[in-house]
Design a protein around this nucleic acid. Structure first.
Length: 197
DNA sequence: TCTACGATTTACT
DNA sequence: GTAAATCGTAGAA
């Protein structure tokens, strides 16, 4: 069962925390992959110096973040990796949640194939670029609808388990001035797939 | 046009 | 622990 649009059209911090424990589903011609979201980061829009849309910067790249919540924002970083974000808040309120780590549950064989050469399962998806590669996420999925689409979407965990949410500073945003220490990274305490403690 | 650099990963010392 | 790989984007010229 999926979340309604209204789940995503809230502030990025709420969406980042509430996505933990739920499922990211990737459907391709090669098969289906289901993974539990275990680590996220909130990028809170035009006032957040770490956010691509800081100062209401609107460019070809950031256009996806101006869509209503529930769409995908995929961009290339360091010329070799893709990062997957879930757009939050309303139309023209450019906030997003970076998916930093997931735990593969279904379609592990396909994940291993996509991440050829990786020995330990925990290294398959414990980072934003890693999970993008593992789930075959690239720019062709930018701006796709996670509420109605079939290639990539979020599914609600109908049998949630108890866990504690840890808040920590976001990773690699040293350029963000006073925003670099904001505890806007959220992860499931004790989960082995979290990228950094 | 031209230049600098990044919401990272991986390999090597 | 340190550094290379690698290129699209943003902002300046």
């Amino acid at each position: 069962m999926r979340f309604p649009r209204s789940f995503f059209t809230r502030d990025a911090l709420s969406v980042a925390e509430d996505l933990l424990g739920h499922f990211l589903v990737r459907q391709t011609e090669k098969g289906k992959i289901v993974a539990r979201i275990v680590e996220t980061e909130a990028y809170c829009g035009i006032t957040d110096k770490a956010c691509h849309t800081f100062g209401n910067r609107r460019t070809e790249r950031t256009e996806a973040m101006f869509l209503p919540g529930g769409h995908a924002y995929v961009y290339m970083i360091y010329g070799m990796n893709f990062c997957l974000n879930v757009v939050a808040a309303g139309k023209d309120d450019p906030q997003a949640v970076l998916i930093r780590a997931v735990e593969p549950l279904e379609g592990i064989d396909l994940v291993r194939e996509n991440r050829k050469g990786i020995v330990n399962d925990r290294d398959l998806t414990n980072g934003p670029g890693k999970l993008a590669k593992a789930l075959l996420v690239d720019r062709s999925l930018n701006m796709c609808d996670l509420v109605k689409g079939n290639e990539l979407f979020i599914e609600k965990n109908l049998h949630p388990f108890d866990f504690s949410v840890v808040s920590a500073p976001r990773i690699n945003i040293g350029y963000a001035g006073e925003f670099k220490d904001k505890p806007w990274r959220k992860y499931i305490e004790g989960n082995k797939f979290v990228s950094k403690l």
